[in-house]
């Protein structure tokens, strides 16, 4: 199915990664084309969050072998901030709070770091505010949150919206949403999905890491992959998600012997 892809954005081959000496990813392969939305599903502990963190470049996640190519670059050679400047964005499952730094100041610093990286001039305060305001409407976020410290005292829903707002402002090429749906009520979920859908274009790609199918009701994926035991054990179209919803993940155990054959 993926044979006719013209432009490959992300190419992961034989990726092995460990955390504190425990191997979590055990030979993962994945290709994501430009403009595609891929969902990564799977039971708890299958390595979904590890994959997201490895791609974002978190130092505690050790890559043991394998390659990751991103727009022709060797992604694993880049530091976390360089990856961000190259257009990789991760929406965190648990966004950290940074007391003392206002949301607006943080976002502007990040945006300017990206612009400097691309040899563009820094954005002026007025243009920035205009940009942020328009994006805040998109994600239905209260303007007041701009002056609050980053994620400090935010509710779970506010934090997740804030992640989507940052995504909308920073305009990444590849967005990785790490369990963005966890702990969200249905309204917040819709807002998050609307944000993502509004950003879907031919050259932006998304990897949506999720445990449940319900987010995929609102963001329809091009491909769905099932991650189990550190490998992708099955891939398919959007219907696979529905199938998983019905059957759960218990079939994986039975299928363990054949693991990997579906990818």
């Amino acid at each position: 199915m993926s044979g006719k892809k013209e432009k490959q954005m992300l190419e992961i081959k034989g990726l092995h990664a460990s955390v504190e000496g425990t191997e979590i990813l055990k030979g993962l392969d994945l290709e994501v084309g430009a403009g595609e939305v891929h969902a990564i599903m799977g039971p708890n502990g299958s390595g979904k969050s590890t994959l997201a963190n490895v791609l974002a470049g978190r130092e505690e996640y050790q890559v043991d072998s394998g390659t990751v190519k991103y727009n022709g670059l060797d992604l694993l050679e880049l530091a976390a901030d360089e990856r961000a400047c190259e257009g990789i964005f991760m929406a965190f499952q648990y966004p950290v709070s940074i007391p003392g730094i206002s949301n607006a100041y943080f976002l502007r610093t990040a945006l300017n770091a990206l612009r400097r990286y691309r040899d563009e001039s820094e954005i002026d305060a007025v243009d920035f505010l205009e940009l942020v305001r328009s994006r805040m409407e998109l994600v239905g976020m209260d303007q007041k949150l701009l002056q609050r410290a980053v994620n400090d005292g935010f509710s779970g829903g506010e934090k997740k919206r804030n992640e989507i707002l940052q995504m909308a402002v920073l305009d990444p090429k590849l967005s990785i949403l790490d369990e963005t749906d966890s702990g969200l009520d249905i309204d917040a979920l819709r807002v998050v999905a609307a944000g993502v859908n509004a950003l879907r274009t031919e050259d932006r790609s998304f990897i949506i890491v999720t445990h449940y199918q319900r987010l995929l009701d609102h963001i329809v994926p091009d491909r769905v992959h099932v991650l189990s035991g550190g490998r992708i054990v099955r891939s398919g179209g959007k219907d696979l998600a529905l199938e998983l919803e019905k059957e759960g993940y218990s079939w994986l155990e039975a299928d363990d012997a054949k693991a990997g054959s579906g990818a």
Binding site: A79, A84, A113
Partner: peptide, 8 residues
């Protein structure tokens, strides 16, 4: 890391 991930 959060700041790094946003390019800072």
């Amino acid at each position: 890391f959060y700041c790094n991930q946003r390019g800072i």
